[in-house]
Amino acid sequence: MAFYELDSTALRALGKQLLPGRQLGTTGHFLGSVLGELGREDPVGKERLDSYLGALVPNALGVDERVEGRYSTVQVRFRAGTAGDGEEVFLRESLSEGTLLAAGVLTALFQPAAFAGRIPLIGIEEPETALHPAGVGAMYEALDDAAQRTQVIVTSQSSELLDNEYVKLEHVRAVANVDGVTYVGEIDAAGRTIVDKELMTLSELHRSGQMLPAQVGYPAPKH
């Protein structure tokens, strides 16, 4: 299993080039090497990753490995020119935290080790961190896509992440802390009914504070 709490400093760092088959580091080390292997071993998967990056980061065309001597890092291609038909490459020092974190999450999801079955479960802490709210919903589509090949679990407090047509009730587990005790479970019957009757979407249910886990015997949250 692989669990990720990505850090922009690690994602931006120069790293040794890895032997094929290695996976992305927990905080994002070896991002460039993993991207390079993905491009060589699975060009279609790399195109899919680049497409999702474009949905998450305005004008982004793709993220690639950049080799500097014996070391590996990343660069991102952006659309440029008044007509948007040009291309400009930004090196690691010039990349924003949001761009790096988006690239890191997508690489964790689409890395060759996951698609080859060597990582049966991927866990990611708050994959929407530093993304513009308008693009967060698109992240869920990437998560759903990767989940067709390996199990994916994410933790999040973002209502925007749930604002996507791919989100289903059975995908979501709610968390509540009551009197120092944490409860995790499927959304309770009241919440499910609200969503089933289309009175609210899942994102609206979460935003309203009515997304609670179905548990027996715990006291109602204090307001």
Rank of each mutant, 00 (worst) to 15 (best):
T129F: 00
L162D: 09
T193H: 05
V184E: 02
V152N: 05
V178I: 12
E141G: 15
M139I: 05
A189V: 13
T107R: 06
N177A: 08
A190S: 10
D179T: 01
A147M: 08
V152E: 05
E198P: 06
R149D: 02
L143F: 02
H132R: 12
A138D: 01
D145N: 05
A146C: 09
L106M: 10
D145F: 15
Q157L: 13
A138Y: 03
T155N: 08
S159Y: 05
G104C: 05
A146S: 14
G137T: 09
L109D: 10
P112H: 11
I153D: 01
T193I: 02
E165G: 15
S159L: 11
N164S: 15
E141D: 13
I187D: 03
E160R: 12
E186D: 14
E128D: 09
A189H: 07
L106A: 12
G191C: 06
L106K: 12
L131T: 14
D196V: 14
E125R: 08
D179K: 00
L162E: 03
Y166K: 15
V136M: 06
F110A: 02
A103S: 15
S159F: 09
T150W: 07
D144C: 12
P133G: 06
G117H: 04
A130N: 11
A146K: 03
T182P: 03
V105M: 10
Q157Y: 13
E198G: 06
D145E: 13
L169M: 13
Y183P: 09
H171I: 07
Q148R: 15
L131F: 08
A103E: 04
V152H: 07
P120R: 07
T193A: 13
R192E: 10
I187H: 07
T182N: 05
V181A: 10
Y140H: 00
V195N: 06
I153L: 14
P127C: 04
D196K: 15
V184D: 03
A134W: 01
V184L: 13
A176S: 14
L131M: 13
D163E: 14
A138P: 00
P112A: 14
A130T: 11
Y183G: 07
V154I: 12
L169K: 10
S156A: 02
D144A: 15
G117Y: 07
L121I: 13
K197E: 13
